[in-house]
């Protein structure tokens, strides 16, 4: 309940406040969002599996975001930022798909 509430309130706040993304954050924000989404899907799956743990969720959420941003930052420094962010998005996308498949199996038994 809390996560859904948090998401909804966050979206509403973001839409209402409509802040402009600072320039230094612009390359990292989308990656961070995707990484956080991965963590959220992982958390939902763990919940369905009955093995959800708040600590693990919080740590994985934060570390996901930080690591993803770090990879993109490193890529930018090395001059392969575009490729590395694509790589990160692909990997996270695959994980999200996997988690979504697990959730689907739990929900629809198929």
């Amino acid at each position: 309940m809390i996560p859904i509430l948090g998401l909804a309130v966050g979206v509403v706040l973001g839409l209402l406040l409509d802040p402009s993304v600072p320039v230094w954050l612009q390359p990292y924000l989308p990656i961070a969002v995707v990484a956080a989404l991965d963590a959220v899907f992982g958390g939902i799956r763990a919940r369905f599996d009955g093995i959800f743990d708040a600590k693990v969720f919080v740590v994985s959420f934060v570390s996901n975001v930080v690591v993803a941003a770090l990879i993109v930052f490193l890529g930018d420094q090395l001059g392969v930022g575009a490729q590395l962010s694509t790589a990160v998005v692909v990997v996270l996308g695959i994980r999200i798909f996997g988690n979504a498949a697990a959730i689907r199996r739990h929900l629809f038994r198929a």
């Binding site: 809390i2 996560p3 859904i4 509430l5 948090g6 998401l7 909804a8 309130v9 966050g10 979206v11 509403v12 706040l13 973001g14 839409l15 409509d18 802040p19 993304v21 924000l29 961070a32 969002v33 956080a36 989404l37 959220v40 708040a54 969720f57 919080v58 959420f61 934060v62």
Partner: peptide
């Protein structure tokens, strides 16, 4: 968790 998801929603919307 609430704070993190709130941040996620915020960042997503932004």
């Amino acid at each position: 968790i609430g704070v993190l998801t709130l941040l996620l929603g915020f960042a997503f919307a932004v």
